[in-house]
Design a protein around this nucleic acid. Structure first.
Lengths: 226, 226
DNA sequence: TGTGCATTTTTGTGATCACAAAAATTGAAT
DNA sequence: ATTCAATTTTTGTGATCACAAAAATGCACA
């Protein structure tokens, strides 16, 4: 009964829809690292059969967002100081590049540039609101939105895929830190600096702002949770 | 009739075995970019049922080694000059880092260092033989072995995953170029420089050797196939 | 010989069942 | 109340079937 999901599958194929839902849940921090995920539980939760859940999980394992234990149980990717250091290095190597590439894409087209700046500002404003109201989940999503709005503008989809993989790996832990410490200590001046750098066509300043944001964010995880 | 494969699945789980076989086939260039891959054909070829083939394909699509067309057909990841440029940037950003990390790991331990140098030398020697005999497939595999022998020594598995994804994307096209032009024009002095740099504890020279090797290899693809 | 339509085959996807192994639960004995 | 063995449940994996859509093939017609 009811092959199609009751909510009406967004993208034609069910397992891709489940993948997106699960991905969003991970980024937003709706799973705590200890919790276990299983094919049948996921299928029940999203009201689909086992196959789409299996395929979604398989994809997320493939890109490092989920892990399989030695006994083939599924859980969020574990974290360690070494892994976090690797993520720091990789993000610092890739994300400033993506940011500058995005700026290069919109640089010559005032309309595009205006649209990008507006979208980034919108995410940043929403993030401020999330900080104000202490909503950690909303903060995590807005922060992700801010960065990927910028990065997507680069149209560099290979690099984008690598960076998405990294975000899925540290995202849940960022969320936990915020959950523990609250949002009052968060600042987003790096984001505002990045927006200004794009407006002023200053790639060096953009690079620095993104680098500083990455370093600060991951340092928080390192201090608080390890 | 024989659930277990007649050859006795190497790693306990069938779909992982198929994944490794398919991965190896892609790296070695056993698929031409035009050729189509399908669940049932793959299953028949490796004498397994459809499920393990599906899961292996799903994983390789997730990491960018395979692509799905708009009509959900499966093929090798396509290539373009823009994509190749992205791969170049990402490789130059990540692989020299991995190489230096590997050197840092073995630096203090003469036994480890000796073992690494010997393994790299072995791959390099085998690659020379492949160039000599004009065996493009063997060359592709040896070249991959050389780099990943080094990178694996870093024990930086997050970075390693990113780089593996990149190699699976450009690997087939490197193989094609070699197939078209033969192996006589290939040099591997960059590899020998990398080995010497490790022996002499010269990370700057190691970084440069790896960077030069990447730049040269990808430039060849760019010139020959696009 | 070339062209367009109809038929057949191939293919990705979803659903369901079986099975072994791991985890969770139960319950009895001390 | 605690411990440990026995039982039950959960879980990943493999196998198989159905279905719709796309690709390939065949064939008649010009």
């Amino acid at each position: 009964m009811s092959n199609e999901t009751t909510s009406g599958a967004a993208s034609g194929v069910v397992h891709e829809h489940i993948f997106e839902l699960l991905r969003e849940a991970i980024i937003s921090g709706k799973f705590s690292p200890g919790s276990t995920i299983s094919v049948r539980k996921l299928a029940t939760e999203y009201n689909v059969s086992a196959m789409p859940a299996r395929e979604a999980i398989r994809r997320l394992v493939a890109i490092g967002a989920l892990e399989m234990t030695d006994t083939r149980r599924i859980k969020l990717a574990s974290m360690s100081s070494g892994k976090l250091e690797e993520i720091r290095i990789a993000r610092l190597a890739l994300e400033p590049l993506l940011a500058v590439k995005a700026w290069e894409k919109v640089r010559a087209n005032p309309r595009l540039k205006k649209r990008l700046v507006e979208a980034m500002t919108a995410s940043d404003t929403a993030m401020d609101a999330a900080i104000e109201s202490g909503d950690a989940t909303s903060y995590a999503r807005c922060n992700s939105d801010f960065h990927f709005t910028l990065y997507r503008a680069s149209e560099a989809f290979v690099l984008l895929g690598l960076v998405e993989s990294l975000w899925l790996q540290f995202g849940p832990y960022m969320r936990i830190v915020i959950g523990q410490l609250g949002t009052s200590w968060l600042k987003d001046d790096k984001h505002k600096r990045a927006i200004e750098a794009i407006q002023n066509d200053d790639p060096d300043r953009l690079r620095d702002a993104i680098s500083a944001d990455i370093a600060e964010g991951l340092a928080n995880i390192n201090e608080a949770s390890l």
